[in-house]
Design a protein around this nucleic acid. Sequence first.
DNA 1: CTGAAAGCGCTAACAT
DNA 2: ATGTTAGCGCTTTCAG
Lengths: 344, 344
Amino acid sequence: MKVREITIYDLANELKLSTATISRALKDDPLVSKKTRKRIFELAEKMGYRSNHFARNLRSQKTNTIGFMVHELQSSFINSVLAGVEKIATAAGYDLIIAHSSESYDKEVANANNLFHKRVDGLIASLSFDTRKMDHFRPFTEKSVPVIFFDRVERNSDYSAVIIDNHKSGYQAARHLIEQGCRRIAHVTSSLVRNVYAERFSGYRSALEDYGITYDESLLIVNDLSEKAGIVSAEQILAMQPRPDGIFITNDFVAAACMLTLKTHNIRIPEDIAVVGFNNDAIGHLIEPALTTINYPGEEMGEVAARTLIDHLNGSSNISNISTIIINSGLIVRRSSLKKGVGR
Amino acid sequence: MKVREITIYDLANELKLSTATISRALKDDPLVSKKTRKRIFELAEKMGYRSNHFARNLRSQKTNTIGFMVHELQSSFINSVLAGVEKIATAAGYDLIIAHSSESYDKEVANANNLFHKRVDGLIASLSFDTRKMDHFRPFTEKSVPVIFFDRVERNSDYSAVIIDNHKSGYQAARHLIEQGCRRIAHVTSSLVRNVYAERFSGYRSALEDYGITYDESLLIVNDLSEKAGIVSAEQILAMQPRPDGIFITNDFVAAACMLTLKTHNIRIPEDIAVVGFNNDAIGHLIEPALTTINYPGEEMGEVAARTLIDHLNGSSNISNISTIIINSGLIVRRSSLKKGVGR
DNA sequence: CTGAAAGCGCTAACAT
DNA sequence: ATGTTAGCGCTTTCAG
């Protein structure tokens, strides 16, 4: 059924050359004369030659593959990171194997093992909600397979990471609300075990403290990042006595669901309750009022992570010198938080 | 730097067995006695053996890889398809190589070549906007590599396809608007070269015809699927004389942007203009009014496409018997279109 | 049930 | 500038 593939032997025979020359020419090795190279390429094209990656990889012990391991694929943030990674990786001739854990630690471990067995040359990963142990990444380090984390990382580890300053971002979000006159600021977030949420939370607390507002634990809502979470949070907030006058939600999508629920209960945003989200998802400026948020440049993060990893694989830099790369983030003010002044 | 890998030779030496036996045992070949197999597995585990996929693939001429080729990755529809494909593929032990063309025909051709050279065992693809020629898929068919299309397909080809009934969906959308009392229904869509948009358009026209409404070409707006397209379309619609009383937009995201723009111009939705979108993106019920739309079950489509492909690769079914699989879709009525009656 | 041995297609040292 | 040659690690006949 399948037609036999053309190999470099066929090309060599046809041109009365050795396979070595063919192999070199195909890699643009300057050792081969321009003329022979041209002949080889022409014949390869004519005969429909396609190189065998498996033979090549088997020989060269490189897979030219990067693993991309995340907690969720259906997230606009993760997708922009993926787009960035894919762009850089493809340009550099690397394939991607994508694995997602659906926020399950066990699946994350299984995925890590799988990618390890598939011998990815490097790994780009973001941890699931409650990953604490990092043992499943040990095999990589033991075999000197570089690993770089982004977004959700384990701060007390030796792995390289690409992140934003979550503490600062949380601080900015809360400070902005305070400056708008909010005094009872609820915080809707996810598992505080995870660095990103923990740090945004601590930024929020720092801001409160700096402005002389006592932290009130009853204003903290921890949930997952589903649409339902947004709705439930809104209901919880509506039930609070006295009612908050501001909310800092660590996810735009959740914020959108939350806002909608509040509005159906006749809460005016931002007049009654001001809202700040996180991520700068497209949804933020399609809802009303437009959502103030923290810009979280996923695509850039992906590009930086991929570039760093590939530079390491090339040998043009060494990842073990790099602890953390912090990408710029920042507050984007829109109408959902503007109790004072005007905005779009 | 890298530690040498354990191979089946190491296992064979250690256990005084041949590599053949090791190889068989590792594949659960019943020819190997339970006892030897157990010893082999234990040692493999103990020594940290991991199989070399390249050697295996080189030998067995199978890559266990499926190509996934799409026009865009940053789309919630495509992502749900991907999620479905990934689920099935992973479960069946296949890797995915993902390539996207950013709606460029040239890039699509390049990606097809690349995936072909990487020797994917099969291909799942959705075409870019203006792909007409299908020559870049010929190499696959020539080598009997199965290809299955979804969503954007070329109807006049022999390739298998997983789609929804776009004509019917377009008809339903338009009919619903008509039933709500709309008489001037604008249609915002994308390149009519592409089957999906062409068929939704023809469905829209059929509905108009069936209800005795003359088709008015000036109500047709063709654009890309960007946020900007939504805004521009809204402006065009506002400029129309007389103004439309309904819009059928073939994409929820574009619809959201369009609605927002209309609203800033004090158009009431649905009272002044009723709106129906397409895709059932999450954004649809987070905006106000909630968007009536066509449910387009991406995840299921991905699952069906992947399963069909893998069944073919297994030999448990033959893809060349399958022309088209049509997945159920249907109208979801929300408030954006309800001129009469009540909805959420 | 197990073993011997050939070879998948390519690369890279070494040789010329 | 080109050729020779020895494997990379595995699977799979064929032979016991």
